[in-house]
Design a protein around this nucleic acid. Structure first.
Lengths: 115, 115
DNA sequence: GTAACATATAAACATCTTTTGATTTGTTTG
DNA sequence: CAAACAAATCAAAAGATGTTTATATGTTAC
């Protein structure tokens, strides 16, 4: 039962829904998330860990960086996340997604997790 | 976004999942829930209100009693609840469901919400 | 009307979760 | 190896949620 509760707890936070919405667009590293969401790094790390513990995100370490992405190994979670993200009003995450596009386009300077 | 968050917050509590599991079997009044879950009445009322506010339960007043049941007017919530209840390990709610059967069978004495 | 009952609400308290600021760990680069 | 950086962790503070005890509200039965 606790495992199921952890999934819902993970989904009951606005910041975490934003993270999922961003991760839906593709794998993202912590430093980019900090920049896209404009929140402190420990705060982002805390929420990423919560999502990971709930089995909703998975991580991939590469050098200094850690990349997070939607964990699609479990059908129930995958489906939940899909239907949840569908339900988030576009207006609510508009700015985050715009910022994501901007950050992704800066391939040269200012860009973290890019060799 | 808040409305969506409230649905997940409502689903992130063990007592509330138990209540939903019981309500799946049919409409139930507060006094019976208190007896089935063996918890204080204000505690049950608190959780019922949380579920109602999240749009997962609806209530029906009848005389002294208030009967709660799954609110199936919204597809997203209905589907969520269905798949969630499916996921709860039977072992976890076995005793509650047994107690529910007992309580439902006592139609004569000790039974509240029965004229 | 008053007594008995079912439920809701409120205030005080306990517990859990999130945020912050400081620090640590681990990796890369020169 | 030292400096620079990314991310995680930690302890303390702040905030939110759940629980308890006592009380209020509304209904029924006498």
């Amino acid at each position: 039962m606790q495992e199921l509760l952890n999934v819902f707890k993970a989904l009951s936070d606005e910041t975490r829904l934003r993270i999922l919405k961003i991760a839906e667009k593709g794998e993202i590293c912590v430093c980019d998330l900090v920049s896209v969401l404009d929140m402190s790094q420990p705060k982002i790390s805390f929420h990423l860990n919560t999502l990971k513990e709930a089995g909703l995100l998975k991580d991939r370490k590469q050098g200094k960086w850690v990349h997070y992405s939607i964990n699609d190994s479990d059908m129930f979670r995958r489906f939940l996340v899909l239907s949840v993200l569908e339900k988030i009003p576009g207006e609510a995450v508009k700015k985050n997604l715009a910022r994501l596009r901007t950050v992704m386009n800066i391939k040269n300077k200012n860009r973290c997790c890019e060799k």
